[in-house]
Every structure is written in structure tokens, then in C-alpha cells.
Design a protein around this nucleic acid. Structure first.
Lengths: 139, 139
DNA sequence: TCCGACACTCTCCTTTTGGTGCGTATGGCA
DNA sequence: TGCCATACGCACCAAAAGGAGAGTGTCGGA
């Protein structure tokens, strides 16, 4: 069934779906979106937005339920993408601070709408899931 | 290093980081966010918002670069969560339509800010990545 | 004296994600 | 007669995500 893929690719190259922006920009935007539309990124963003500068373990506490591995990775990626600044204080028990950049704060503001949506409609999503289960799943 | 995890869990249970909302709601909201903050979900949402009602292959074309498996899965989850309506026309070459619900349109609107952010700042993200590479990576 | 704390890194392991390709039902078209 | 198109489900497989736990280096406190 690669016919569908071929058709997709062809259509995509001809960019029928996206007339206003160039394919290159589209691709970059999608890359950024895919990177940024991540659960942990969103959560860390929220934590830093709400509490300002935090150190490693504090971010972990605020986010809750994240492993150090994922925390390190997420923070590194956010630093790479210019969303946070990482400040290392070369003292003997290590001390590292993380702060949102302007870019990070902007993104946080943009995600605010999604948070609001989730808080506003999570009950409806639950209801929809229940209805779906009863319609297709259990019955 | 499960000390950190234990501390996190304890803190989280005591919900020091999230005073305004109850932990149960928080958990649900996070679940919804995690579900919805997905690359394909965002892309499908965009496609349906922009083009209205589409059928399976059309969604695939609009999104671009998605396999049928992921398309099916994403669409099913969105249907389950009440974001799209799936209408099956029982004709012999199968015909299935997908349309956003009001909930879906609201979410799409909420994500609009993130899209705008990405379009506005993708160049800065690229620059930040380049700088980071030069700082830590290659040099 | 010896453990804990910080901010990681590294290894091992399981789970999830995602791709490819095959099957399917059948009316319409060649 | 026989192949195509639609919207999938299913099986198999590779790759990536993600968690658990151990190691690190030094210093201050018990």
C-alpha cells in the first residue's frame, strides 16, 4: 500500500495543502512543533514560568513524576532550542540554575491556551471517552 | 538515586507545586495534555480545521508523511476523545468522513498560539541550535 | 569516619512508537 | 474476465522513548 504514500509525497511536494508558506519553512516549523509539543517540555515550561529560576531537583519536584534522565534530556533540548538558560555555579556540591528565556516565556504564553482548554474541557473529554467505551469497547 | 524520585513523589502528593487545583483534576488534565500534545494530533487537527470535512486519504494527504497506521490510530483516539466525528457511509468502496467537533475546534484554536509561535520564532530556534552546536557540539 | 547531597552520566531493560506489507469486500470499469 | 479503489485490521519488525539503578566527586554534618 505504498500507493497512498507515493500520492501523499507527491501531493506534499507539490504542496497543495499549504499554499501560503514555503515548503522549507513548513518543514522547519513542523520540526520545531514536533520538538516542542512534548509532554515534559510543556510541564517544565509551566514549572519555570510559574516559579521563575529553579535548580535541577526543584524542576523535578515541580514537574513531578519525571525521571532524572528525562529531566536532563528535556532541559538540555530546551537549552539547545534557546528556551532556557542554564547557569552553572562551580561550587563543590554542584549548583545549576534554569531560567526561561524570552523565547521560552513566549512559548509558555502560547501554550497557555492549551492548558486552559484542558482545564476547561477535560470533563467533556472524559465523558466522550466513557461514551466511546460504551459504544465500541465494552458493549 | 531513587531518593530524588521519593522526594518528588512525596512533594507531589503533598501537592506543594499545585495549590489551586485538586490533584485528581491535575492528573486528568495532564493525561489529556499528554494525549493531545502529540505531533500527529496537532497536524490532523490543523488539516481538519483548515479544510473542514475530509475523508481518510484526504486527511493523509493534507497532513503529509503519515502512515495509514498512525493515521488510523490518531483519528481513532481523536474520535474517542470527542475531537472528531467519524461518519461511515456504507457504500461498497468504503467512504468515511471526519469532521471536527466543537471541542476539536476549540482545541485547534488553542493550538493556534503555538503554531503562531513556531512560525514567528522558528528562525530564532534555528539560531539557538546553531549557537549551541558551536558552543558545545562541534567546537 | 562515613553517609548524604547535588547534578548529573552510564548501562541495562521494558514499553511504546512507527513503518511496511498483506489481506479484504465488491461494484464499476476496461 | 479481471483488476482497481477505499479504509482499514493484522502481523511482523526496527527504532526510539523512557524507567531503574549504579557510579561520580567532594564536602559538610552527624
Amino acid at each position: 500500500m505504498q500507493a497512498i504514500r507515493t500520492a501523499m509525497a507527491a501531493m506534499h511536494q507539490r504542496s497543495e495543502a499549504i499554499p501560503p508558506v514555503s515548503p522549507a519553512v513548513e518543514s522547519l516549523v513542523r520540526q520545531v512543533i514536533a520538538q516542542v509539543a512534548d509532554k515534559w517540555t510543556m510541564l517544565v515550561l509551566e514549572a519555570l514560568e510559574e516559579h521563575g529560576t529553579l535548580r535541577f531537583t526543584e524542576v523535578g519536584r515541580m514537574v513531578g513524576g519525571i525521571s532524572q534522565k528525562m529531566l536532563t534530556k528535556t532541559l538540555r533540548e530546551m537549552e539547545r532550542d534557546g528556551l532556557v538558560v542554564r547557569t552553572v555555579h562551580p561550587v563543590i556540591p554542584p549548583h545549576v540554575d534554569y531560567t526561561l528565556t524570552e523565547l521560552g516565556r513566549e512559548l509558555s504564553a502560547a501554550f497557555c491556551g492549551v492548558w486552559t482548554w484542558a482545564e476547561t474541557y477535560y470533563a467533556e473529554v472524559s465523558a466522550a471517552r466513557k461514551a466511546f467505551r460504551e459504544r465500541e469497547g465494552g458493549a
